[in-house]
Design a protein around this nucleic acid. Structure first.
Length: 208
DNA sequence: TAGGCCATCTGGTCCT
DNA sequence: AGGACCAGATGGCCTA
């Protein structure tokens, strides 16, 4: 969507620009060049002088207006590029997140929440692995409720739930609210094959 | 048709 | 002064 500034053309004699205080402060009668002759000749030298002043002022205001417009256009361009960069970064983030089987593109907010939970889950995996290495065969190290691949329902009845308070060094994601109506109802799709099996159930529900 | 998502424009504010 | 960042407004597109 491109906004067209129809009043950018300053070749016309008619400078019908909106006037602002800012423009007023920048206006100068002295720096203005003589107006071009696009009307009837003035009747007297005084009128000619006044006309010159008015025309010069109008031209100056027009110049200021054009400068402002150019600045705005440049700012719009920068803002557009900035948002494009932001979207590129989001695409890059999507590319490293587990993809949906049907190639559904996550929305921006979904991508951010998904990434947040995904990072949390990965860090939990590392943490558990580390603890297992230091304390092998300790069943207490299994995160309750994190194994939710269908045959391991959580105590709460939800097909999946984040282990709140599972660790003192980690906190469950803020967006962890299992919703049976969410895309979590899709088929299981495991990812991280560790003792704790992660699936879409682990991440996707908390997006919403 | 309503609602969600998105791109873009815009003006304000902060920073260099 | 100019650029970056931000939030609000607006309009288009898509889907249920």
């Amino acid at each position: 969507m491109e906004t067209v500034y129809s009043d950018m053309d300053t070749s016309s004699c008619d400078y019908s620009f909106t006037h602002t205080d800012d423009e007023d402060s920048r206006s100068s009668l002295h720096s203005a060049s003589p107006a071009s002759s696009c009307g009837k000749p003035p009747a007297s030298p005084v009128e000619l002088q006044q006309k010159k002043r008015r025309s010069g002022r109008a031209r100056n205001e027009a110049t200021v207006h054009v400068v402002k417009k150019n600045r705005r256009v440049k700012a719009n361009d920068r803002e557009r590029n900035r948002m494009h960069n932001l979207n590129d970064a989001l695409d890059a983030l999507r590319s490293v997140l587990p993809a949906f089987p049907d190639d559904t593109k996550l929305t921006k907010i979904e991508t951010l929440r998904f990434a947040h939970n995904y990072i949390w889950a990965l860090s939990e995996t590392i943490r558990i692995a580390d603890q297992r290495q230091s304390k092998p065969r300790d069943p207490a190290l299994l995160l309750p409720g994190l194994s939710c691949m269908g045959d391991a329902p959580s105590p709460g009845g939800n097909s999946c739930s984040w282990p709140s308070g599972a660790s003192s060094s980690s906190s469950s994601p803020s967006y962890c609210n299992s919703d049976p109506g969410s895309p979590a109802a899709m088929d299981d799709f495991g990812y991280l094959q560790t003792d704790v099996v992660y699936s879409y159930h682990n991440f996707v529900p908390s997006i919403y």
